[in-house]
């Protein structure tokens, strides 16, 4: 479904991603793990066209998307739940969610999708009329995920959904992501929380210093000696 080929990305003179190749098949739950500064978020931004690559190609459902402007990506069915939530702080939870459903197709079913999203996140129903900036960290993350769902995407990108959350809330967020996946969503997630994410994903790629170091089934990587040493401290 998503295919990244020989991708090189740089910010000015600093190259961040080196010859990155990976793919996500329909219905898969793929995770990119790596330490701080490995280039994970840049990868996500490249997929969403927020940064344009120096060279290489990104295609979604066979269509090349790295040359498209950022605002046309979501309309193709690829929703991005960005790092640090990136809500609209002075808009209500409801308005934030509505902003997720701007494309003509998503707009048609906005009311139903909205109710569905709220049933997945009952907490947000209580906060419907509250400004998003006044929500707690966990609620903000739920709001960001719900906003992504509002676009009725075929695939979702999650960038560090556990960032700044307590272990309990992190568990909760991962459970929700898994639930969304079980309902048929294709997912690409970026995480620093290596142990937990490798446990729930189908496949994973390990990113180090902007290069793909290894890949494999989540559970296999969890057993891998190198991964253990580098990320799990064993």
């Amino acid at each position: 479904m998503l295919e990244v080929k020989n991708l090189n990305v740089s910010y000015g003179d600093v190259q961040v991603l080196w010859d990155v190749n990976f793919s996500v098949a329909e219905g898969e739950f793929v995770v990119l793990v790596g330490a701080n500064g490995a280039g994970k978020s840049t990868m996500m931004k490249a997929v969403s066209s927020l940064v344009s690559p120096m060279s290489g190609e990104i295609s979604f459902n066979g269509r090349r998307i790295d040359t498209l402007p950022a605002h046309s990506i979501i309309g193709l069915g690829l929703a991005h739940v960005p790092e640090g939530r990136q809500l609209f702080p002075e808009m209500t939870v409801k308005e934030n969610l509505e902003m997720g459903a701007l494309s003509p197709a998503a707009k048609l079913t906005r009311k139903e999708t909205y109710q569905k999203a709220l049933s997945l996140f009952p907490r947000l129903r209580e906060r419907e009329r509250q400004m998003a900036g006044t929500l707690s960290g966990g609620e903000q993350q739920m709001c960001a995920i719900a906003r992504g769902l509002m676009a009725r995407p075929k695939m979702m990108l999650f960038d560090e959904p556990s960032l700044g959350l307590s272990p309990v809330l992190t568990q909760e967020v991962f459970r929700l992501v898994q639930k969304i996946h079980e309902e048929g969503m294709t997912i690409l997630m970026v995480e620093q929380n290596v142990k937990q994410t490798l446990g729930i994903c189908d496949r994973a790629y390990v990113l180090e210093n902007g290069r793909i170091l290894m890949q494999g089934k989540g559970k296999d990587l969890l057993e891998d000696q190198k991964v253990k040493e580098a990320f799990l401290g064993i």
Partner: peptide, 24 residues
């Protein structure tokens, strides 16, 4: 209106607005 909300969204977080499909 959706367009008006898009204006506010762009003011509050331009990058997120673009992710939502707003032509900033």
């Amino acid at each position: 209106t959706d367009l008006g909300k898009s204006v506010r969204a762009t003011a509050q977080n331009k990058e997120a607005a673009r992710l939502m499909g707003v032509n900033a």
